[in-house]
């Protein structure tokens, strides 16, 4: 696949156009990547596809090889793997807080102590998720901007 970058003027709309013979998984992946960079993720719920603004996502969880995006009131499945989203969403203040979980730091309302050195993140949606001990150091560093 050839890649061509064309610069446009300020008055024109920025657009990424993929010209392909068939919409393969690879093409879909590229589309998802571009959308995530633009601030939204593609997710499916009730067999319908949605564009979910990254800022609406509270946390992301991987369950049995599937990845789910949790917003305040809905759950969407996404084609992305958790490690791919970790890299993609780092600039959007997402942080890994457990092996199968990423959290949007902007959506944490408070942090409470949990049993045995772990912490619970209380999200703005009211949900509570566990911050694994292994990721507490990374959380501290992220909050300090390191």
């Amino acid at each position: 696949m050839n890649v061509r970058i064309e610069q446009v003027g300020k008055a024109q709309e920025e657009l990424v156009l993929i010209r392909c013979r068939a919409v393969t998984d690879e093409v879909r992946e590229i589309a998802v990547f571009v959308k995530s960079r633009a601030g939204s993720l593609t997710g499916t719920s009730d067999e319908r596809q949605y564009e979910i603004p990254v800022t609406d996502v509270c946390y992301i969880e991987s369950v049995d090889g599937k990845t789910f995006l949790y917003t305040r009131d809905r759950v969407y499945e996404t084609a992305y793997r958790i490690y791919e989203l970790e890299e993609l969403l780092k600039p959007k203040h997402f942080l890994r807080i457990a092996k199968p979980m990423l959290v949007n730091l902007m959506k944490i309302q408070s942090i409470q102590p949990a049993f045995n050195g772990r912490f619970t993140a209380v999200l703005s949606s009211g949900e509570k998720i566990i911050i694994s001990r292994n990721y507490v150091k990374a959380l501290k560093a992220a909050l300090k901007g390191e």
């Binding site: 730091l105 408070s110 909050l143």
Partner: peptide
Amino acid sequence: FMWFKDAAEAKKLNRELEAFQKHHA
């Protein structure tokens, strides 16, 4: 004792979280 230690750490984390969110809002 361990819970008190974690509670103090959580308090500190909450202060840092608040500052982080204000900075990036």
